[in-house]
Nucleic acid binder design. Structure first.
Length: 225
DNA sequence: AATCAGGTCAACCGCGCGTCC
DNA sequence: TGGACGCGCGGTTGACCTGAT
């Protein structure tokens, strides 16, 4: 059918934002709120499309944003939630106040994935990786079929029931996810979660008390039901 | 000091979903 | 009921940074 572009591409700026643009956007939203992203750039006097403004605001300018490394607790929450929710970065981000989906996605792709692999965990399905005597088969369709991996996990599921049931039992969302027991394997190996491999977080870098995990998770999981 | 490779992250793009008419 | 529209999401890109050679 041919979708209309989200904005008139002609005459609109792209690329990195300048400090001036940041100020305009920030000031406008702080004083007027963002009623309608599509109309906002014009009202704020910006040559950007609404989408770009929304992204800039949510990922960078929002006053409640935290910057810098994710703490170890935050990382654990991310890993745990990823095991349950998959690549739903916005959902995951909603459990980490001050963090954005983009930030978490980036952090996952650049840090956590690598860390999990080093720990012998497949970051896609949170299964233990097969012994790497040869190069792993190309993707093994794991991405496409997480359930296949889940079935392999039935043993470890039982081992972790006590830990898991409180959270897992509340998940009833969606076809695949409610069956997603991949997190069980995560739990199984997460006892070995190697602190040594995580960046050292200095006390002044920790901006939030480190115990939001379970309550947030439970809240959201209840929302999912 | 220069070059290269790999890593990081802000921003863009396209699609799907929900809402409205 | 179905098309148009706006928003949000996830994947991808590309510029910049940093460390190795």
């Amino acid at each position: 059918m041919g979708r209309k572009p989200c904005c008139q591409k002609v005459g609109l700026k792209k690329g990195a934002w300048t400090a001036e643009e940041d100020n305009k956007l920030k000031n406008f939203i702080l004083t007027n709120g963002h009623c309608c992203w599509r109309a906002l750039p014009k009202l704020a006097g910006l040559l950007r499309c609404g989408k770009s403004c929304r992204l800039r605001w949510t990922n960078y300018l929002r006053p409640d944003l935290k910057r810098g490394f994710l703490s170890e607790d935050e990382e654990k929450i991310v890993i745990d939630l990823h095991a349950k929710l998959g690549n739903r970065w916005s959902k995951i981000a909603s459990h980490l106040p001050g963090r954005t989906d983009n930030e978490i996605k980036n952090h996952w792709n650049t840090h956590i994935k690598k860390k999990l692999r080093n720990m012998g965990i497949d970051p896609l399905v949170h299964n233990p990786l097969p012994p790497t005597t040869t190069t792993p088969p190309p993707l093994q369709e794991q991405t496409q079929n997480p359930v296949a991996g889940q079935e392999l996990l039935s043993d470890s599921v039982d081992q972790n029931k006590e830990t898991e049931t409180s959270m897992q039992s509340t998940i009833t969302e969606g076809k695949d996810e409610d069956k997603n027991m991949a997190s069980s394997s995560l739990m199984e190996v997460s006892n070995e979660f190697c602190i040594d491999e995580t960046p050292v977080i200095l006390p002044h870098e920790i901006l939030v008390p480190s115990s939001p995990s379970s309550s947030y998770i439970l809240e959201d999981l209840q929302c999912l039901t």
